[in-house]
């Protein structure tokens, strides 16, 4: 298991200081921490449990229940392909395949250089532009397998 740096753990503590103790703060706190350090490893979950004064099992339960929370570190750029109904009907499958092929990784994995993570989402609500792909907060509509390389190229640096 990768250990988080002291600096990052301090950041987590500072974030937790903003939240009142108790379970009702849990989801908001997890959002804030993930936004800061990218994921929620076990040591962070422990710290959350300690600071909010709730059982570790509760924190673990919530982290694993909600799709949005990650226990593993992610790449610098998270490519999320939408697999909602409209995207599905308009060929999201072939777009996802093209990403897998171009990046050389399967959905749910990160490239060895730590740059890209490939993920799928339920629906971004941009169905009018299906199929849709999001890279961090940038959204790309009317995707096709041909456009995949073009989108990735923007983030290769």
């Amino acid at each position: 298991m990768v250990k988080l740096s002291k600096e990052k753990l301090d950041k987590v503590e500072t974030i937790l200081d903003r939240f009142p103790k108790g379970q009702s703060s849990l989801i908001g706190a997890l959002h804030a921490i993930q936004l800061e350090i990218g994921y929620l490893p076990e040591e962070v979950q422990k710290l959350v449990a300690e600071k909010l004064e709730i059982p570790e099992s509760t924190v673990y339960g919530v982290v694993t229940f909600y799709n949005f929370f990650r226990k593993e570190p992610v790449g610098k750029y998270i490519i999320t392909a939408c697999q909602g109904t409209a995207c599905h009907v308009r060929g999201a499958g072939s777009v996802i395949e093209a990403f897998e092929k171009t990046l050389g990784i399967k959905v749910g994995h990160t490239t060895p250089d730590g740059k890209f993570t490939l993920d799928i989402a339920r629906c971004f609500g941009a169905c009018g532009l299906a199929p849709v792909v999001m890279v961090n907060n940038d959204i790309y509509g009317r995707m096709s397998p041909k456009k995949v390389e073009e989108v990735i190229a923007k983030y290769r640096d």
Binding site: G22, Q23, S24, S25, L26, F65, F68, F69
Partner: peptide, 25 residues
């Protein structure tokens, strides 16, 4: 505003209430 965390079932009203209270939805 309370932000969800990606669970379809939370659209169900009792699950949503559980989620707002900080529990699994």
């Amino acid at each position: 505003i309370v932000k969800g965390a990606g669970a379809f079932v939370c659209g169900e009203e009792t699950a949503m209430i559980a989620s707002i209270e900080g529990e699994t939805g």
